[in-house]
């Protein structure tokens, strides 16, 4: 019987399931006789990892630890494995650029929130956008902040002149908000990035 080596990631993508990183090496080292076998195995594991009812995947604890969860640092290559000389690119597969590094330099102080409304469209913040808030940044005048005014959250550009605080929308349809001394005002965090989907 002819044995084929299929790419598990591609198969998983076709099935619309994501292959947990942890089990990827397991598939890389396995040889399946047909695509159907691999599909069955992937679906099985996917169910098991989602903790679906009555999935009988794990036949022994040692199998579970030794095989399915083994996390040997074997990256899952984007191309089917072939014989012959190795691609020089494979030395660098793990050296990926990370958006986390770029957008979230301080993860312990960083939170994600979802923008609503259109008061900040001029700053490129649209309804439904993902906002990245870094609480560790020292807030300065002109920062776009997530502020608490009385009991409500709001995203605005904060202008500070002497003791006066103005929350400025970036849309002409909205008016400036001048914070009065009887209001509860707090900067929750500084908005550092906007993630906007382009469809």
């Amino acid at each position: 019987m002819k044995q084929t080596k299929l790419n598990a990631n591609d198969v998983a993508k076709k099935l619309g399931v994501s292959l947990p990183k942890l089990v990827a090496p397991f598939f890389q080292s396995q040889t399946f006789t047909s695509e159907a076998d691999m599909v069955a195995a992937i679906l099985h594991l996917d169910k098991a990892f989602k903790n679906e009812k009555n999935v009988a995947t794990i036949s022994s604890l040692s199998e579970f630890f030794d095989l399915k969860l083994s996390n040997r640092p074997l990256p899952l290559y984007g191309s089917a494995v072939s014989c012959g000389f190795t691609s020089p690119a494979e030395d660098h597969v793990e050296n990926q650029l990370s958006l986390d590094d770029y957008l979230v330099p301080n993860p312990d102080a960083t939170f994600f929130v979802r923008a609503s409304g259109d008061s900040m469209t001029g700053a490129g913040i649209h309804d439904g956008d993902l906002l990245i808030i870094d609480r560790s940044i020292e807030v300065k005048s002109n920062h776009i902040v997530l502020a608490v005014v009385d009991t409500e959250f709001t995203i605005k550009r904060m202008l500070k002149e002497d003791t006066q605080i103005i929350l400025k929308p970036e849309n002409k349809k909205f008016k400036d908000m001048v914070i009065t001394s009887d209001q509860n005002f707090m900067v929750w965090g500084v908005v550092v990035h906007v993630i906007h989907h382009l469809k």
Partner: peptide
């Protein structure tokens, strides 16, 4: 013996009522 043929036995459960969103 280890876990062989792992199955889950789930019955109906009343979910906790006032769980806040998993914001993080």
């Amino acid at each position: 013996i280890h876990v062989a043929n792992h199955q889950r036995f789930l019955a109906k459960r009343r979910a906790p009522q006032w769980v806040s969103p998993q914001y993080t």
